[in-house]
Amino acid sequence: MGWVLLVAGLVLWCGAHLFKRIAPELRTRAGDPGKGAITVLILLSVVLMWIGYRRAGIVDLWFPPPWTVHINNLLMLVAVFLIDLGFSRGVLRTKLRHPMLTAIKIWAVAHLLVNGDLASVILFGGMLAWAVVTVILINKQDRAWTPPERGPVRNDIIYGSVALVIFAVIIYIHNWLGVWPLPG
C-alpha cells in the first residue's frame, strides 16, 4: 500500500502543479476557488508522499558511499538558501530566474546521492523530473524574463543567516524522524 500512496502522491503533486501550465485557460476560469482546490490537492499530495515513503518497503538498488553525506549536506544548504530566494530583496535574486525550482532540483539530487533505495528513487527522482519539466514549460511559455530590482547586499547576508537557522531546524526534524543527516 505504501508504494501506491507514494506514487499517487507524486502524481497528484505533479498534476496539481502542472495544471496551471498545461491548462492555463481552465486554471484562470477557476479563479480563487480553483486556487483553494489546488492548495488542498498539493497538501494532500505531500501527506500521501510522506505516508507512502515511510510505508514503502526497502528495496535497495545501490549502496551510496559514506562520503556522499558531505556532498548532500552542502547541496542541502544551497537548496535551503534558494528555496525562498524569490522573496528576498537582495542582489542574488536578480541572478536566478527559478530559485525555488532550482532548490527542488538540488534537494532531489542531494537526496538521490545518499539514498539508494527504490522508494527514494521514485520520490526524489519524480520530484526532480517534475521540476525539470516545470522549468521547461515556464521558459517555453514565458520566454522573456526581467530580473527584479536589485536590493542591498545586506539583505542577502540576512537571508543567508535565516537559511542557516532553517537548515538547523531541518536537521533537528530529520533527527526527530529517526534520520540523522550529519556524518558521524
Rank of each mutant, 00 (worst) to 15 (best):
L5M: 11
V7N: 03
V11F: 04
L12N: 09
C14P: 00
G15K: 07
A16R: 13
H17G: 04
L18A: 09
L18E: 09
K20L: 13
R21N: 08
R21E: 05
I22W: 06
I22Y: 03
E25P: 01
R29F: 03
A30Y: 02
D32M: 07
P33Q: 03
K35I: 07
K35E: 05
G36S: 00
L43K: 02
L44N: 06
S45P: 09
V47H: 06
V47L: 14
L48C: 06
W50Q: 02
I51E: 10
G52F: 03
Y53Q: 01
R54V: 12
R55Y: 10
R55D: 09
L61D: 13
F63H: 10
F63T: 15
P64T: 11
P64C: 11
P65C: 09
P66M: 03
W67H: 12
W67E: 09
T68S: 15
V69Y: 10
H70S: 11
N72V: 05
N72W: 10
N73C: 07
N73I: 06
N73F: 15
L74H: 04
L75N: 09
L77G: 15
A79D: 15
F81C: 01
L82V: 14
L85M: 12
S88N: 13
G90Q: 03
T94G: 05
K95D: 01
K95R: 03
L96D: 00
L96N: 14
R97I: 08
P99V: 15
L101Y: 01
L101T: 03
K105A: 14
W107Y: 04
W107D: 09
V109M: 01
H111R: 10
H111Y: 01
V114C: 11
S120E: 12
I122S: 00
L123N: 09
L123V: 13
F124H: 12
G126K: 02
M127R: 01
L128H: 03
W130Q: 09
V133Q: 06
V135F: 00
V135W: 05
L137N: 03
L137K: 09
N139R: 04
Q141K: 05
Q141N: 07
D142R: 06
D142Y: 00
A144Q: 08
W145I: 03
T146E: 12
R150P: 00
R150M: 11
G151V: 09
V153N: 00
V153F: 12
D156N: 07
D156P: 04
Y159P: 02
Y159M: 05
G160M: 05
V162L: 14
L164H: 05
L164Y: 01
V165H: 02
I166V: 13
V169Q: 01
V169M: 08
V169F: 08
I170S: 07
I171M: 11
H174F: 14
L177P: 02
G178T: 10
V179C: 08
L182W: 11
L182H: 03
P183S: 09
P183G: 05
P183I: 13
